[in-house]
Amino acid sequence: MSMTLTAAPAPSRARTVSAWSLQILLALVFLVAGGAKLAGVPMMVQVYDLIGVGQWFRIVTGLVEVGGAVALLIPGYAGLAALWLAGTMVGAVIAHLVVLPTPAAPAVVLLVLTATLAWLRRDQTLSLLGRRR
């Protein structure tokens, strides 16, 4: 039995433009949010005091967000970065629902947007993992 690998069809222009637009938007959002955490903006310090795990977690979260934002802009890594940030947003949604007195809506919106980008860039992620569609 012979197996022939064929290249997946190239994504449509609309899908590519949509993905890049979403990547740029999310990169800006996560750079600002992660930067605020790393800079120790008083509101972020208060939020992490309420969460109760310590300020070290604010720094780690800021590094995760800034690193994810940068990776969103590196061709070929956007899908993986979107998965990384979606996982971070799952944690944020849980924190808002369980601990924080503020609405979870912004975190939910970011979760939906990062998950959408992960889906749009799924071929890239599969390629990085050594799997072809």
Results as ranks from 00 to 15, higher is better:
43 M>H: 15
44 M>L: 13
44 M>R: 03
46 Q>L: 15
47 V>I: 15
47 V>N: 11
48 Y>M: 11
48 Y>I: 07
48 Y>N: 08
49 D>Q: 12
49 D>F: 06
50 L>C: 09
51 I>N: 02
51 I>R: 04
52 G>E: 15
53 V>H: 11
53 V>N: 13
53 V>K: 07
54 G>Y: 13
54 G>I: 14
54 G>V: 15
55 Q>C: 14
56 W>N: 07
56 W>R: 06
56 W>E: 11
57 F>W: 09
58 R>F: 14
58 R>A: 15
59 I>M: 08
59 I>G: 01
59 I>S: 00
60 V>M: 11
60 V>Y: 12
61 T>S: 14
61 T>L: 12
63 L>I: 14
63 L>G: 06
64 V>I: 13
65 E>I: 12
65 E>A: 14
66 V>C: 13
66 V>P: 07
66 V>M: 12
66 V>T: 14
66 V>K: 06
67 G>M: 08
68 G>H: 01
68 G>Y: 00
69 A>I: 08
69 A>S: 12
70 V>H: 06
71 A>N: 05
72 L>P: 00
72 L>M: 11
72 L>A: 05
72 L>W: 02
73 L>R: 07
73 L>G: 07
75 P>N: 10
75 P>E: 04
76 G>W: 09
78 A>I: 02
78 A>K: 02
78 A>R: 00
79 G>T: 02
80 L>P: 02
80 L>F: 03
80 L>N: 06
81 A>I: 05
81 A>V: 00
82 A>C: 10
83 L>P: 06
83 L>C: 08
84 W>M: 01
84 W>I: 01
85 L>T: 03
85 L>D: 01
86 A>P: 04
88 T>G: 04
91 G>N: 05
92 A>G: 06
92 A>T: 03
93 V>D: 06
94 I>D: 08
95 A>T: 05
95 A>V: 08
96 H>D: 04
96 H>P: 05
96 H>N: 10
97 L>H: 09
97 L>R: 12
99 V>G: 08
100 L>Q: 04
100 L>A: 07
100 L>K: 03
102 T>A: 10
103 P>E: 00
103 P>I: 11
104 A>S: 13
104 A>H: 10
104 A>P: 07
104 A>L: 09
104 A>D: 02
106 P>A: 10
106 P>K: 08
107 A>F: 00
107 A>N: 04
108 V>T: 09
112 V>K: 10
112 V>N: 08
113 L>N: 01
113 L>G: 06
114 T>A: 13
114 T>F: 09
114 T>S: 13
116 T>L: 15
116 T>F: 12
117 L>T: 00
118 A>D: 07
118 A>L: 11
119 W>C: 04
119 W>P: 02
120 L>E: 07
120 L>M: 14
121 R>C: 03
